[in-house]
Design a protein around this nucleic acid. Structure first.
Length: 1084
RNA sequence: GGGCAAUUAGCUCAGUUGGUUAGAGCGCUACAUUGACAUUGUAGAGGUCAGAAGUUCGAAUCUUCUAUUGCCCACCA
């Protein structure tokens, strides 16, 4: 053991410990001892926006996830925690544009697309470095080798692929829809990007024209220039006769609009609001748009993207701003005397969350993901969603609802499930295009100058397109980019090597060669499939229809060609003949019986028999491996993300399917004749099989504020693209607030920057402050004082360790088996039993996300039991080095997920056996191997009660702290207490005398354990004692009355469980004994 | 308007399926100082569990209502 300083100074340890962890490679799950046999445990770090620095909210997320990861790593899991960053298209571009304007007074249009993107990249790079620095500071045991970014190459490939699949599945469509338009940002905003503002407005009630039969109301009369209908409540007597009629009106005066107003009835209209009739402006209101769609009303756009009135508004209005147009319309209404009422009202209007400009709803061609259209559900070979059959027709809404309804995804706290369903049920199609430059550009091209009718079609493609395939003219890519959640929705699987190339190996059906059991590798010989064989393949082809096959390759032999032809016809795809997957070359054995061949070279079923040599010039297994692997290598490069059918023969399939599995020479299973199996190969090279190993992930941990924006979208993307849930559990933490419960914001100046407080109090203290006191889904108040409190605790643990380690010349690892039960004192058994108990509590709590409970239980044990009692007692009993070390070792492990640094620092100075021996990868204490001692726990509680009582007496009667008090005790626990006499005497600073009666003239206190007396100090008088005893007597008497009443109640005796009754009886007995002792004392 | 949550000691919060004389930390009061730790120890004060009604042998815990606070969703023409 090296010298430990008196106080723990985190700055001296944290950075170097983190660096050593990282260098050791233990953050990478494949480097963990016995990694291959460990069960995977995965958390994807919610990628923070590339825009800024991390705040305490991020620290909470890091602390929680790191605690989970460390706990599971120590529990023998193959723990992967994968970091990354989100490009956050809108937020990032906005930030850079703002800076640009502030510093250089230029806009993005001055720079141009290319240059702006370059600037953003620089900005993002800088921010990412800062963020990863902050994550390291928090002690996050992230696998940095797998770090990802939502806008990098692999993620872009995945985005295009999913877009294309959705496009082909008719889930992505382009539509003229009313969207939220911010005329300042010149961009569409999703509902999630809206804020609201309360403003005063005038609600005008008026008629379109004097002879118009219905009065309507509006705060924006200018939009009425685009009205095409009036909606009323069905059956409203006032208007019933008019429903279905179309009325022509001139609106807005000379140069205004000629409106064709159709009267419709709809349940969405509120009878009692305003006039009970609603002027419908389909182009500039979400609600009206929906109404118009239901009733087939036309749509007239009268406000342009620039926020000015269009020609459709009429020549008198074209070019005016909205405000000007409103003035003009109102003036006209006044002049025509059409206004019936004007009232000032308060209304909430949607605004752009970022620039606070009022939203102008307007129709625009946008890309949407339909949540209603059905698609054929994909099959997962890893972790298929239960309850949705592969290939079944289902909508995204259905799949999103299903996986949560069936608890395949559990949300903690559960109440958010309700919120989730409510949201799903009201979900509208997802507008995914954004009028931005930064982000994943929409992979759709249009002919720049359409010449033929076909040219007008939008073409979706994974590869870039430069030429229109119909007219040969220039093709232009859609200028818009995708909503950032489109790519972050795929975070759980694009980080694991997806898109995979799926290869479906189909073995040819039964052929004449099989029936005759002879060998054939000569493609010029014509051996057909048998009838049985054809039937086998037909059945297989049906199944392949569910697999979204993109291409078919086949060996040149006739039996494989025939097999491929059947599949080709079923799927409507051409067949490519591929030499590299032909049958094993048979050499001199061409046309001979298999038996003859095997008589010479042995069982072909064991590739070892013919791995490197084969008789008669026949091909070796190794040679087949090489050519098939070469083919697959090429295939996954040219067909990334595709599903490929490879029709081949037994041996080549056998040899081929070990491709990409390092160290595997052949696949242990392979398909029967005429059937198939699926193999998936990723593109990450060294991480082959990541998706298989780590997906679905175990926990998604994030704030409840992005449950819809992100959590729901990940569920959408994963169920769609993979047919899997993205995670099994969702843990939602609350928002971090300041000590007054306010949100942390820059303008309030109450932001707690983790980088400010970490140097002051240490990372461990910050983590404790964030983990203890948090309950799922509830907000957490943090203050510097709270962090300072936990800093004190880290120091306490440090000093506990210092004391324990000073007891032993050489620190060493102690197992429970090393401790001799025979030699244990009551106190030893008590603490060991408590350690076992707390180990159980902590383990169970961490398994159920009860972070606060685990932390509190551990803190109470560490401070109130171990430090305050056991260590003090150990100083008296002595000879406890072994047990102390054992307790410390387990304690450090239990604390490690919460306080990684101080625990590792202590471990390193005391127990590390070498450079790579870290507490971080030590084995979690096994509570099942730790015996409990319930009797010792009870006995020691008596000891504690007596000591506390004596101390209280001392304080009560102001006895000098240095003075040793001669105590007399009358008790039925004499043997227990006598056994612990030295400890009691030292901790209470007393000498103990057991007696049957209290000595005369002494002061006493009565507790459950008996009567304790001390000699009367000069200063005290009798009334003090009597007063206290009288009060206690009163107290106990009342308690007895309550208990007695309860036990006299026959209903209680009849209905309460026996154990409860027994417990109450025990209490009553003890209370009566105590009362007797008090009365005895008072009577004396 | 619809929904969700919270309300327990001066402050921040625990309190697991109803069974404790209702707990912790901070703060407060008094005492203690060379032996692991003053970033400490010891003892103590402090609560009608927001209010009302109900269910039950038994309610901080379950039900209903009320009040206050916070959040989410929808928004009105």
């Amino acid at each position: 053991m090296s010298e430990m300083p008196k106080a723990y100074e985190p700055q001296q340890f944290e950075d170097s410990i983190y660096a050593r962890w990282e260098e050791s490679g233990a953050f990478i799950p494949e480097n963990l001892p016995d990694f291959a046999t460990r069960k995977p445990y995965t958390i994807m770090l919610p990628p923070p926006n590339a825009t800024g620095t991390l705040h305490v909210g991020h620290s909470t997320m890091l602390a929680v996830q790191d605690a989970l990861i460390r706990f599971n790593r120590m529990n023998g899991k193959r723990a992967l925690w994968l970091p990354g960053t989100d490009h956050a298209a809108l937020a990032t571009q906005n930030k850079v544009e703002k800076d640009l304007f502030k510093n250089e007074k230029i806009t993005r249009h001055d720079l141009g697309r290319e240059e702006l993107l370059k600037r953003i990249d620089v900005f993002v790079e800088k921010n990412r470095d800062r963020m990863t620095f902050q994550m390291r500071k928090m002690g996050s045991s992230l696998d940095w080798s797998r770090e990802a970014f939502t806008l990098d190459e692999p993620r872009s490939r995945a985005v295009r692929l999913v877009f294309k699949q959705m496009f082909d599945d008719k889930l992505i469509y382009r539509g003229n829809r009313v969207i939220n338009w911010c005329s300042r940002c010149a961009s569409t905003l999703s509902d999630d990007e809206l804020g609201t503002k309360t403003r005063k407005a005038v609600l005008y009630s008026f008629k379109y024209a004097k002879d118009f039969p219905i009065t309507i109301a509006s705060t924006q009369p200018e939009t009425k220039l685009g009205d095409t209908g009036v909606a009323v409540y069905p059956g409203d007597a006032r208007y019933e006769a008019l429903v279905g009629k179309t009325i022509d009106v001139d609106f807005g005066g000379q140069g205004g609009s000629k409106l064709k107003i159709q009267i419709i009835a709809d349940h969405g209209v509120e009878k009692d609001f305003g006039t009970g009739a609603l002027g419908v402006t389909p182009a500039h209101s979400m609600v009206d748009y929906a109404l118009a769609m239901n009733h087939n009303l036309p749509l007239v756009q009268i406000i342009g993207e620039d926020g000015l009135m269009t020609a459709a508004a009429g020549s008198a209005y074209e070019g005016l701003t909205i405000a000007e147009a409103r003035e003009k319309v109102v003036a006209w209404l006044r002049a025509e005397n059409l206004i019936e009422k004007e009232e000032e009202i308060e209304q909430n209007v949607p605004i752009c969350e970022r620039c606070e400009t009022e939203i102008t709803p307007l129709p625009k061609l946008q890309w949407f993901v339909s949540v209603e259209n059905k698609f054929a559900f994909r099959e997962s070979t890893r972790a298929p969603v239960a309850g949705i059959a592969a290939g079944s027709q289902i909508s995204l809404k259905d799949s999103m609802r299903h996986v949560v309804e069936t608890k395949q995804i559990k949300i903690v706290p559960e109440r958010f499930e309700k919120t989730y369903f409510h949201w799903i049920n009201n979900l509208r199609d997802w507008c995914i295009s954004r009028q931005l430059w930064y982000g994943h550009r929409i992979p759709v091209w249009y002919c720049a100058a359409p010449k033929t009718e076909k040219c007008a079609e939008a073409v979706c493609s994974i590869e870039d397109i430069s030429v229109c395939q119909h007219c040969g003219g220039v093709a232009e890519q859609d200028p818009d980019v995708l909503d950032t959640w489109f790519s972050s929705g795929m975070w759980t699987f694009t980080t694991l090597g997806w898109p995979y190339t799926r290869v479906i190996f189909v073995r040819h059906g039964e052929a004449e060669t099989n029936v005759g059991d002879f060998l054939n590798s000569d493609a010029t010989k014509e051996y057909h499939l048998t009838e049985t064989g054809r039937a086998q393949v037909v059945a297989t082809a049906e199944k392949l229809k569910l697999q979204h096959v993109d291409a078919i390759f086949a060996s040149p032999l006739l039996r494989t060609q025939e097999t491929a032809k059947i599949i080709s016809d079923a799927l409507g795809l051409p067949v490519t003949t591929e030499e590299c997957i032909r049958e094993a070359g048979m050499g001199e054995f061409e046309g001979k019986l298999t038996a003859e061949f095997e008589a010479i070279m042995g069982d072909r079923g064991n590739p070892a028999n013919w791995m490197h040599s084969s008789p008669g010039g026949a091909e070796t297994f190794q040679a087949i491996r090489e050519r098939t692997h070469g083919f697959l290598d090429e295939l996954i490069k040219t067909h990334t993300g595709k599903t490929i059918v490879v029709v081949s023969h037994g041996d080549p399939i056998w040899a081929a399917a070990s491709f990409g599995k390092s160290g595997v020479l052949w696949d242990s299973e392979y398909p029967q004749r005429g059937s198939f199996y699926v193999r998936e190969f990723d593109t990450t090279g060294s991480q082959v099989g990541d998706l298989n190993t780590y997906h679905p992930t175990d926990v998604l941990e994030t704030g409840y504020d992005i449950i819809f924006q992100w959590v729901a979208r990940m569920i959408l993307m994963s169920t769609y693209a993979l047919g899997e849930v993205p995670f099994k559990n969702v843990y939602l933490h609350g928002m971090v607030r300041d000590e007054q419960g306010r949100k942390m914001s820059k303008s309030l100046g109450n932001v707690l920057d983790p980088l400010d407080v970490i140097p002051k109090y240490g990372t461990d203290a910050v983590r404790l402050a964030l983990l203890i006191g948090q309950t799922p889904g509830n907000d957490l108040k943090v203050s510097e004082e709270k962090i300072a409190g936990f800093r004190n605790f880290t120091n306490k643990l440090w000093n506990i360790s210092r004391f324990i380690l000073s007891q032993d010349a050489a620190s060493h690892l102690v197992l429970r088996a090393d401790i001799d039960d025979e030699l244990l004192t009551t106190m030893d058994k008590w603490i060991l039993s408590r350690l076992a108990g707390v180990t159980k509590t902590v383990t169970e709590s961490l398994q159920t996300f009860a972070f606060s409970r685990a932390g509190e239980a551990l803190r109470d044990f560490t401070w109130n039991e171990l430090a305050d009692w056991y260590l003090e007692g150990a100083k008296v009993e002595g000879e406890k080095a072994e047990i102390l070390q054992y307790i410390l070792q387990n304690l450090l492990k239990l604390w490690h997920p919460y306080m990684p640094f101080v625990t590792e620092a202590i471990w390193q100075s005391a127990y590390a056996s070498g450079e790579k021996d870290f507490l971080m990868i030590a084995k979690w204490p096994d509570e099942t191997s730790m015996p409990l001692y319930p009797e010792a726990e009870k006995d020691f509680a008596h000891v504690q009660n007596v000591i506390v009582a004596i101390r209280a007496l001392r304080t009560e009667y102001k006895i000098d702290a240095k003075e040793i008090v001669p105590v007399t005790i009358i008790t039925k626990y004499k043997s227990t207490l006598a056994q612990m006499q030295p400890v009691i005497e030292r901790l209470a600073r007393a000498t103990l005398l057991f007696a049957d009666a209290a000595p005369a003239g002494q002061l006493a206190t009565v507790i459950e354990e008996g009567t304790i007396t001390i000699p009367k100090p000069e200063a005290a008088n009798n009334s003090d004692e009597r007063g206290a005893l009288e009060a206690e007597k009163e107290n106990v008497a009342q308690y007895i009355a309550t208990l007695a009443a309860k036990l006299a109640n026959e209903d209680f005796l009849a209905r309460a469980p026996a154990a409860v009754v027994e417990k109450e009886q025990g209490k009553l007995r003890e209370a009566r004994e105590k009362l007797a002792a008090i009365e005895d004392r008072l009577g004396a």
